[in-house]
């Protein structure tokens, strides 16, 4: 199990942390959640199904526990994002400014998404999971997560 966990962490550390950060809204709490989850996972047997979903699910539960314990429903809004990476195509300074503006709008829009759609966006777009995996993480069918993701995208587009 340890080798498997190491492999999953190395491949998905960013996604795991983003998921925890999206739930807790605090960088420190997110790190605690990931750490707690792996502490729990170390002693367990390997899961029967998809191990990646299983690890994400454990991190999600740890993050929810920590968030409930520490914040008691108070919404923290530490952003998931840390700036904008300009694409190589945008050599034009005007388009770069435009992209930066879009980035600001997008960050705000994502952070203000409803919780369920926010998680769907994080799991699919930021953590790179499939709809099936994201559904496993949240304990809902893949179709439901797909529709939440689409609704989330629609909301984001409405900001432009």
């Amino acid at each position: 199990m340890s080798d498997l966990l190491k492999e999953i962490y190395e491949g998905h550390r960013q996604g795991l942390f983003s998921l925890a950060l999206a739930i807790t809204g605090s960088r420190q709490s997110a790190e605690d959640a990931v750490h707690d989850a792996f502490t729990k996972l170390i002693g367990r047997k390997p899961p029967v199904g998809d191990a990646i979903s299983y690890v994400f699910k454990t991190v999600r539960h740890s993050a929810i526990d920590i968030h409930r314990r520490e914040q008691r429903g108070q919404k923290l809004s530490e952003s998931l994002f840390n700036g904008f990476i300009p694409s190589e195509e945008s050599v034009d300074p005007a388009s770069e400014i435009l992209n930066k503006e879009r980035d600001l709008i997008l960050r705000k829009a994502i952070d203000n998404l409803p919780e369920k759609e926010h998680e769907a966006i994080v799991l699919k777009a930021l953590a790179g999971l499939t709809f099936q995996q994201a559904g496993n993480v949240m304990g809902i069918p893949a179709k439901t997560i797909a529709s939440r993701y689409r609704r989330g995208l629609e909301r984001l587009e409405n900001h432009f």
């Binding site: 550390r13 942390f17 983003s18 840390n82 300009p86 980035d103 997008l106 966006i121 984001l156 432009f160």
Partner: peptide, 14 residues
């Protein structure tokens, strides 16, 4: 466009 922008966002890293 939105998905592309999402992919270009720099995320906070652990």
């Amino acid at each position: 466009q939105v998905e592309k922008l999402l992919s270009q966002m720099a995320l906070q890293e652990p």
